[in-house]
Design a protein around this nucleic acid. Structure first.
Lengths: 154, 154
DNA sequence: TTAAAACCTCAAGTTATATTGAGGTCAAAC
DNA sequence: GTTTGACCTCAATATAACTTGAGGTTTTAA
C-alpha cells in the first residue's frame, strides 16, 4: 500500500509542465536546481522529472522572495524540510514560522520609516546617527558604516 | 546680502569630506554623479566641489533606498526639486510625500503577506491565482505571469 | 620643496537573480 | 519514419548598485 500510495502521490512532472504550472521559466527551474532549491531526477533520456511537491516548493520560494528573503536564506530554511518523505502541512507551517519573525521585523521597520520619513526628510533632523531611518535592526539597507551626524542646517 | 548669504550657505565641500560626513564611499559619490543623482562643480585643479545640501540629498537617497525605492525612481523624484535654488524644507517635504504612498502600499502588502503566509504556506491554498501572496498590487516581486492555479493537493 | 594624502579617469570586477543562445538530443504526433 | 516541439548543457549576457585597481595629477603639510 505504501508503494501504491507513492505511485499515486509522486507524479513524474516534466520541466515544461512544472514551468507552466508554477509560472516560472524552465531556465529558472534549472537555475533553482543548481542552487539546491529544488530537486529532480532524470528519466532514461536524461530529462528532468519532478515530484508534485516541487510546485509547492516553488510557490514557497516565490512567497519568501516577495517577503524580501534571499535565495540563500530560503535555501537554508528549505533544508530543514524532511529529506526522505514528502513534506506535510505541518512541515510547511514550521517553515513559514521561521519567516514570520523576519517579516514582522521588516514590517516594523517599514512602519518606523513611514512614521518618520515625512517629518524626517522635511525637517532638519535627517542625521545618520539620530534618525530612526538609519537605526534599523534588520537587513534592509546596508548602511552599517559608522554612522555620522549630518549637519544639514542650511 | 543675497551674495553674502550664498557665501555662507554654499560651502565648497570636497568629495572626501562629503564621503566622511555622509557615510558613503567616494566611489559611490562618483557613481551617484554619473547617475545624475547628485551634482558637483570642479575647482581649478579639476577636483569636485559640493554644495552643503548634497549631504541631505544623499541622506534622502539612502532613506529612499531603505524603503525599497530604486535609484532610477529616486532620480525621477529628485528632479522635481528646484534646480536653481537650494531646496527648502517644503521642497523636501513634498518629496517625502511622493514616497509615502509607495511605502504605505508596501507595508500593506507586507501585512497581507504576514496575515496569510502562515495559513497559506501551511494549508493547501497556495495557488498562483487565489493566494493573496500573488495578488499584490505593488512592485514587490515580479510575478506578473498569467497566474496559474497550483494543484498542491498531495 | 618634497613627500604623503587626496583626488582624477576609465575599465574591469562583484553579487544576486536570472535570461538568452548555440549546438545538439529526445519524444510525441502525423 | 520523419518532423516538430520539448529537452539537454554550457557559456554568455543582463540589470542594479556599487567597488576595486591601475596609472596619473593636485593639494597639503612638514
Amino acid at each position: 500500500m505504501q508503494t501504491d500510495q507513492r505511485k499515486l502521490t509522486e507524479a513524474n512532472l516534466t520541466v515544461g509542465y512544472v514551468a507552466k504550472r508554477s509560472g516560472v521559466k524552465v531556465s529558472t527551474l534549472h537555475f533553482y536546481e543548481t542552487k539546491g532549491l529544488i530537486r529532480s531526477w532524470r528519466n532514461s533520456g536524461n530529462q528532468r522529472r519532478y515530484k508534485k511537491d516541487v510546485l509547492r516548493r516553488i510557490a514557497v520560494i516565490k512567497a519568501a522572495q516577495a517577503m524580501g528573503i534571499t535565495l540563500d536564506e530560503i535555501k537554508h530554511t528549505l533544508v530543514t524540510l524532511p529529506d526522505q518523505r514528502t513534506p506535510t502541512q505541518k512541515d510547511w507551517a514550521a517553515l513559514s514560522k521561521q519567516w514570520q519573525t523576519q517579516l514582522d521585523e521588516r514590517i516594523a521597520y517599514m512602519q518606523r520609516l513611514r512614521d518618520r520619513v515625512d517629518g524626517c526628510i522635511g525637517c532638519g533632523c535627517l542625521s545618520m546617527s539620530k534618525c530612526p531611518i538609519y537605526n534599523k535592526n534588520d537587513h534592509l539597507g546596508e548602511n552599517q558604516s559608522g554612522a555620522v551626524l549630518l549637519d544639514t542646517s542650511n
